[in-house]
Design a protein around this nucleic acid. Structure first.
Lengths: 350, 350
DNA sequence: GTGAAAGCGCTAACAT
DNA sequence: ATGTTAGCGCTTTCAC
């Protein structure tokens, strides 16, 4: 192995490695990409040359020929009428939920040397641009976190036949891959727990009816309550924000002042609701037991600490990555979904 | 203009556009990159051809020759001993603060068609990899959010002479560009406000001494209090988390039970502190006035709502992007910093 | 099993 | 002012 090749000031290329190893570029390329047809002896020399030169493949060059960029987009998408300055969406990145998704996906991507490009799309030009990137091969696929049920992006992505995985089932019936948790089962756990501790007058603050998560949690909760003999459960819809939780709680209290159990469709709203309950002189859990959903960081910052249904968001995000990769590697692969089971985390509020 | 060129099933290339427009690739390239030497007439024909074909430049090809990828990394970095599962860092992405930075930077980048790659680096391999990407030209530059003062990354980036901008001034004296707010001035506003409303026994929950923000806010606060005749201000250090705020408040109360004013170095800790105060039977602001720092979303979810020093985080992040671009465009450009002024947002806690 | 050679789509000299 | 040409660094037939 020829060791006195001058080290270039630019990053070493395949060519350099090849010269150092005394072989051709093609062989080095084969070694790097793990193609079988390589003599172990030669492979070894090449490996040493790679180490000696500190060679790292150039992504752009590789992307140009393979038509894969080894980058996926994590997109937070919303319909046109939802501005990211809205309380609902302004939260998008600030929301602990988003942080967990990003975190889980990142861990899985980093292991594979894939880059994660963060994008926010909430208007037609942005959607067109995203599609352009995909079609053009600037991005290999997309992990999408839809924040509203009316978002047109999932359908566009599906029709463009582009690798995509959604967080949560799509609002419309769509042939699209997604990762979700059994929202209804989670809500049922909340119901069982509330009933189990003896609550008789139970209500719920549910999520927006046009979001699958909102709808499923409400249905699951009502079904389980019915099973326990509570045919009717008062529900007020909130928008998944802290303030939304406050207003919903106010409305609920006005209507049913003697509640002794409450299921809130996410922790942020539960936090708001608990503030209102305290202002109203209700003790939690003595007067009214409260169960949230998500197990986000805010569940630990309520007083008392929030009992809540935990979604394994990080693992779900990791699963999204794995699923997306199968689609990227085989464009013909049929859509699939991966469903996780939530768990009840019992703390002090119920 | 030749319009009957068959549309390729692959994304159109410069070549296609050139054929449609009846000119050479070079000319099309020139109009796309806004090089002057183009006949307005021809430029117009080319523009139409671009529109007709739906042409979008291929990033990989462009990156290969220009040695610019038009992508910057937003890195959340920490020293080796800080695991991202720590309460301190687990927050990283979940922290509303991070969300604001990402949001502000993204807006500025999107306007320029630059991609934002999210990275988390908290060990040596990750640091080496990041440096490799930079040196290799896989990434044009980095926006760094250091979460602890002892982080070695800023120095490494500086020494590698790579385009980088920090959020907040570096912990060490380093020739590095950064964007910051006048932390001491912000803390002084809190002091003035507390003294202005008549507080006599004032303490502070400060941030980690090894973070510039923590240190500056403490110094600024003490200096301003001294100016008002309060030579000594009790301080307990917290770690910028909700729980940290709780423990610090507990310690403070044990030591100085009769406080009537409190400055907390960030909103998250203020939230925790207020919970402890309530448990201790202290009314805010009647018994003790509380001022936070940041004006993050949690400032609106405390009871009473938190009076706090606002940092214009989104604008600061946008400034980081602009500063970074100057470094990317001119590698020899001397380091610079941009400093913003915080403002006091008066709500109900003080 | 290995090398030679062609190109991926683009920009930037260099000619004209 | 425009076209021609030579690569950027890599993968991938296709010969051998």
């Amino acid at each position: 192995m020829n060791t006195d090749v001058p080290s270039p000031r630019r990053a070493p290329t395949l060519e350099h490695v090849a010269r150092v190893a005394g072989v051709s570029r093609a062989t080095v390329s084969r070694v790097i990409n793990g193609v079988r047809n390589v003599d172990p002896e030669i492979a070894d020399v090449v490996q040493r040359a790679i180490a000696a030169t500190g060679y790292v493949p150039n992504r752009a060059a590789r992307a140009l020929v393979t038509r894969r960029t080894f980058a996926v987009a994590l997109v937070v998408s919303a319909p046109d009428d939802v501005a990211f300055e809205d309380p609902f969406l302004g939260r998008a990145f600030a929301d602990p939920f988003f942080g967990r998704v990003a975190s889980g996906a990142l861990a899985e991507l980093a292991d594979r040397d894939l880059h994660m490009i963060l994008m926010r799309v909430n208007d037609e030009p942005a959607r067109a641009e995203l599609l352009g990137h995909l079609r053009h091969g600037d991005i290999d696929g997309v992990l999408s976190i839809p924040v509203a049920g009316t978002d047109p992006l999932p359908r566009m992505l599906t029709e463009a036949r582009v690798p995509v995985v959604l967080f949560g089932r799509p609002a419309d019936t769509l042939a699209i891959s997604y990762v979700d948790a059994t929202q209804d089962a989670g809500a049922a756990m909340a119901a069982d727990h509330l009933v189990g501790r003896g609550c008789q007058r139970v209500a719920t603050i549910c999520g927006p009816a046009d979001t699958p998560a909102g709808a499923d949690r409400l249905t699951g909760f009502r079904t389980a309550m019915a099973r326990h003999g509570h045919a009717y459960v008062p529900a007020v819809e909130g928008n998944f924000t802290h303030d939304g939780g406050e207003s919903a709680m106010l409305a609920l209290l006005r209507h049913d002042p003697d509640l002794d159990g409450l299921f809130v469709a996410n922790d942020l709203m539960a936090q708001g609701a608990m503030l209102v309950l305290r202002d109203a002189g209700r003790r939690v859990p003595e007067d009214i037991a409260v169960v949230g959903f998500d197990d986000s960081v805010v569940a630990l910052s309520t007083r008392p600490k929030l009992t809540t249904v935990r979604q394994p968001v990080e693992e779900m995000a990791a699963a999204m990555v794995r699923l997306l990769l199968t689609h990227i590697e085989d464009r013909a692969r049929p859509v699939a979904s991966v469903i996780f089971e939530p768990t009840l985390v019992i703390r002090d509020s119920a």
